[in-house]
Amino acid sequence: MEKLYSNKKVIFTLVFPGILIFLCAILFPICLSVYYGFTDYSGMGKASFIGMKNYEELFRDSAFGRSLLNSLLLAVGFIALQHPIAMIVAAVLDKLGGRGEGFFRCVYFIPNVISVAVIAYLWKFIYNPDFGLLNSLLHLFGHQEKVNFLSQDTAIWSVLLVLIWHGFGWGMLIYYTGIKNIDPTLYEASSIDGAGVGQTFLYITLPLMKPVIQINVTMAVISALKQMETVYLLTGGGPGGSTQFAANYLYQQAFKSFRYGYGNAIGVLFIIICVLVTVFMNKIFKEND
């Protein structure tokens, strides 16, 4: 067997399908996207090379700037709100044990199993100013005036709430898995030394969760940039572009306005941002020797 796997032809035969898939499905589309970003291609006909004009327009485009700012706001919401709560919930579930642990783990993950379309339309009904659940609750507590949660002033916060709630299960599950992989003897030792719940979390759980936190935070930023389906079905980017997110703006430019080259320029900028975020997170969480 060792002789077989040391044969270069065997190695090439095993590795080649994976390399071919990577080249055709990932690298080639990225290179093609970079090329189209320098053209005025509309999705049909011939593409003409226009140099940096798409990127120059991109940095002057106030609508794109707003969409990028909304995506950044969502990333902050993920990191500052969703992830700390998800980590605490994961730690509590780990201590809960028994049937309760399995039950609540499933309950928190249910929104991630439900279709995005169902989630969007469900929240549309909840936010409805005439018969929505939130307005019914406000009316129950004495607030007679109807509130339109998807108006231009409040829509972005309403959408952020839906997105943070919808992605909570994934974040919690990843943190839960990370906590489960911590050696229980460390907790036993801390208990013998008289450490409280808070001290155990701060000095054992949190430091050993650094690799998991790094992955989760990186994925949160990338997910915020990629966010499209829920926003598209919930508000379509409106009203007045107040809930426009970067990926949704890319879709509208490339496939609705037939500015395929401009859409690809946005996509290339996404790739650059994602690479920079990954490098930045690697430096922050870099382990010292």
Rank of each mutant, 00 (worst) to 15 (best):
W123E: 11
F22P: 05
G261L: 12
I164Q: 05
Q253A: 08
S158P: 09
G178H: 07
E57S: 15
F149R: 00
V212N: 10
L133S: 14
F22W: 09
I271C: 13
D193S: 02
A90D: 02
F64R: 02
S71G: 11
Y249A: 00
F103Y: 10
L27V: 14
G267Y: 04
M209Q: 11
A155E: 00
P29H: 02
H143C: 13
F22R: 09
I88Q: 14
F280A: 15
M52S: 09
F64M: 13
G171N: 15
C31D: 11
K9L: 15
E287Q: 10
N54C: 01
G169D: 06
R105C: 02
L58Y: 05
S151V: 00
V279D: 09
N128H: 08
D183I: 09
L137G: 10
Y127F: 10
W165Y: 13
M281L: 13
P211L: 02
N288R: 15
A47G: 11
F245E: 07
V159W: 08
L160M: 15
L206W: 06
L137S: 10
Y251H: 12
Q227P: 04
F149Q: 02
Y36H: 13
T154D: 12
L138Y: 04
K256C: 08
A90F: 04
P211R: 00
L160H: 11
C274F: 07
V10M: 11
Y187V: 04
Y251P: 01
P207L: 05
E2V: 14
A220I: 03
G65L: 01
Y35E: 06
G261S: 03
V92K: 13
I174R: 09
A90Y: 01
A246S: 10
